[in-house]
Every structure is written in C-alpha cells, then in structure tokens.
C-alpha cells in the first residue's frame, strides 16, 4: 500500500545538506573551540554521529537545525568529559559568581552608549564574545549569526524557550558589560561610581514569551485608548 508521507532522506540528501551547511557548522565550531584544527575535528565528529543517527532522522524535520543539534551535543559531550577529567567547579556556579560580581561592579553601564558600539573593533567584540561562557555564547551565536528562531534554538539546545531567552539575555548583558568595561578603559565612558553600582539592581531575564504574547494585547486595549 503506498504511503503519503515524504520519502525518507537518503545518504545523498544527507551529503547535500551536510555540504550545504558546512560553512555554518564550521563557523560555529570555530567560535566554540576557538581553534581551526579543533573546529575541523568537532565538525568531523559531528558528521560521524549524524551519519550514525541519520537512520532515525524523521523525514520532514528541519535538517539544518538537526545538524546544529548534533554539533552542539557533540561539543557539550566533549567539554563535559574534559570537565569530569579535571573535576572543575561547575560552569553554572562560576557563571553565577561572575554575574553577581558584574552586576555589582558594572551594571551602572546599563544605559546603552551607541557610540561605544561603533568605537570598539570587531576584534575586541570577538574577544568579548569568545570570553562568554559557552551556554551564553552558543545562544548568541545561534540567534545573531545563524539566524535560528527561539523555537529552533530550543530544539538545538534541548531546553525550553524560556531558557533560550534567559541565556540570550544574559549573554547580551555580559557583552554589553564587557563593552562598557572596555569603554571605561579606553576613557570613552566614565567609570561607575560606587553609589551608582550599589543602587543598580540587575534585571531579571525574561523567560515567559507566551505570557507576554498574550498580555500586551489586552493591555493595549485597556490602557492605550
């Protein structure tokens, strides 16, 4: 009996997709590993895994997002292993300390200075980007560089959309803070005064997109007329 579902992708489809998205995958790998040979190695490993699991791949699914998912998981598997080997303090703990430190020290730089963004070099911005913890870096890269939607990112990162938004928010906050520190160093913006730092509360990252999508409509109807 003939089926009406899309034909299962075969090896040729895989090769076509893999080669089509190779630049993007390599670009992300390069930003994650920060080394050409390691990036090539990561992409190769990704392809090996993707080929192994390709049989389970369901026709009609987003092949590009799936390849990025495999790359992301391969990357996380590696760093997890590295960290177990080294018995490092967990990244999230380090991140929280950093957030607390940063929010106290430099949140005074929350007022955006558009001139600053045009003053820093791409190299400086790239350094700041590469200094982000990988959870945040990955979110920012997937969104801003690879143009994935929140929903696709949730799939790639294997987490809820709220978590995606929170990582994006925190990643960008840190970038902004890093740029601000750089601006202070370059003498472009004044250093935060202690009193300003004390009184500035860090913002809570937004996490509930659905709730937002529902609320403004009603609010708009009530209060803006």
């Amino acid at each position: 009996m003939p089926t009406l579902t899309a034909p299962r992708p075969d090896r040729e489809d895989f090769e076509r997709a893999a080669l089509e998205h190779l630049d993007g995958l390599y670009g992300l790998a390069l930003k994650l590993t920060r080394s050409g040979p390691d990036a090539e190695d990561l992409v190769q490993d990704t392809m090996v895994r993707a080929l192994r699991f390709f049989e389970r791949f369901e026709a009609g699914t987003n092949l590009r997002a799936w390849l990025f998912t495999v790359l992301t998981n391969t990357f996380y598997n590696r760093i997890r292993k590295e960290r177990q080997d080294r018995a490092l303090a967990s990244e999230s703990t380090a991140g929280e300390h950093y957030d607390r430190f940063m929010s106290a020290a430099t949140m005074a730089g929350r007022d955006p200075d558009p001139g600053l963004l045009d003053t820093v070099s791409s190299r400086q911005l790239r350094d700041a980007l590469e200094a982000l913890p990988e959870d945040f870096r990955l979110a920012v890269l997937l969104c801003d560089v690879h143009g994935f939607s929140y929903k696709e990112m949730a799939e790639v990162l294997g987490c809820p959309i709220g978590t995606v938004m929170s990582r994006l928010y925190r990643g960008r906050q840190r970038l902004q803070q890093a740029l601000h520190s750089l601006g202070v160093e370059l003498g472009l913006v004044p250093a935060p005064t202690p009193s300003a730092a004390e009184t500035t509360e860090p913002l809570a990252p937004p996490t509930d997109l659905e709730a937002f999508r529902r609320t403004p409509l009603r609010r708009a109807g009530r209060s803006e007329r």
Binding site: E15, A18, L19, L22, D23, L25, Y26, G27, L30, K31, G36, E40, V43, Q44, M47, L117, V120, S122, R123, L125, R126, L129, V140, L141, D144, V145, L175
Partner: peptide
C-alpha cells in the same frame, strides 16, 4: 556588530573533502 564580528572564513576545502 556581533554578526559582523563573528563572520569567518568558509570551511576549508580539506574538511569538505573529508565529509564527502
């Protein structure tokens, strides 16, 4: 700016061949 800063070279031809 992030998009510009993160722009990088395409995957090396060697990698392309390895994938094939």
């Amino acid at each position: 700016r992030v998009r510009e800063a993160a722009a990088c070279d395409p995957a090396p031809e060697r990698l392309r061949q390895q994938v094939r």
